[in-house]
């Protein structure tokens, strides 16, 4: 297939022991050791207080990485096109709904219900930023990140304007966690642009090819890649952190992988 291309103007990460891109960059470039720890989620201060109280972990995570990437790229969030990608969006909320529906009364809370949509993070993001541009929410199970990246790149090509990709996953509580085990909250955002700018980090070209996803050579980090669908982006982030030109294979659907070629700017 023809490759889809864009310039990467900023990267953001929040994951277990990876608290923001500068910290993650140092770990992925092997300038700092990886120190395991829980994912730290900041309060979504961009949201009005009434909305902030209603948001779950995945919304806090998505807003945090989205703002980190947009700010570093110098983008005006109010006009941004966004692509949200997640395997399950708000798993805690889904658990509560299933619990309630298993009771005799089935008294569902209206807020629980409206938070159950897969585009909840996208909806809260638009309220927080005032962005009225196109915004979508995708799911591809473990391939959610690569699907989101492909969609975001196709939007950059079609619209010829910056697009913010936000991939965010949080684990389910028990008993669903036994059916869908994830390690901890993991979020990644990429600010993509159609042309090279002052802040461009790399040029990215992606295409679907037959193959399997690359693993991380570092055995301390490989569990992070497998621990959440958004973590499947780590081989790509490793290239960015090491300021390397090269290519990686990201998890997609069999028999394909998403081949991402990175050229340093």
């Amino acid at each position: 297939m023809s490759a889809l291309t864009a310039f990467v103007d900023a990267i953001a990460v929040l994951g277990p022991g990876l608290d923001g891109w500068p910290a993650a960059e140092a770990v992925l470039a092997r300038h700092a050791p990886y120190a395991p720890g829980p994912t730290l989620l900041p309060a979504p201060l961009a949201l009005p207080a009434a909305e902030r109280r209603r948001t779950g972990r995945v919304v806090k995570l998505a807003i945090a990485v989205g703002l980190e990437a947009a700010n570093r790229a110098g983008l005006e969030v109010g006009g941004l096109v966004t692509v949200f990608s997640s395997s399950a969006c708000d798993g805690d909320n889904c658990h509560e709904i299933c619990q309630t529906l298993a009771t005799a009364e089935r008294e569902l809370s209206p807020t629980r219900f409206h938070n159950s949509v897969h585009n909840a993070a996208a909806g809260y993001w638009s309220i927080a930023t005032g962005a009225m541009a196109a915004s979508t929410a995708l799911c591809g199970y473990d391939a959610s990140f690569a699907m989101g990246l492909l969609e975001a790149l196709s939007q950059v090509a079609a619209l010829q304007r910056p697009v913010l990709l936000i991939a965010a996953d949080t684990p389910y509580p028990p008993p669903l966690s036994a059916k869908r085990p994830l390690s901890d909250a993991f979020g990644i955002a990429l600010a993509l642009a159609p042309s090279r700018g002052e802040r461009s980090v790399a040029r990215l070209a992606a295409s679907l090819v037959e193959g399997v996803a690359d693993r991380l050579a570092d055995t301390a980090l490989e569990p992070l890649r497998l621990g959440a669908p958004a973590g499947r982006a780590l081989p790509l982030l490793e290239l960015f952190a090491r300021r390397q030109t090269g290519s990686v294979m990201l998890e997609y659907l069999g028999p394909l992988a998403l081949c991402a070629e990175v050229n340093r700017c």
């Binding site: 949509v117 897969h118 929410a137 995708l138 799911c139 591809g140 699907m147 492909l150 679907l208 028999p255």
Partner: peptide, 11 residues
């Protein structure tokens, strides 16, 4: 099918 696939879930 073996091409690209995705689910959009925006309510």
């Amino acid at each position: 099918l073996e091409g690209p696939a995705v689910v959009v879930s925006t309510a």
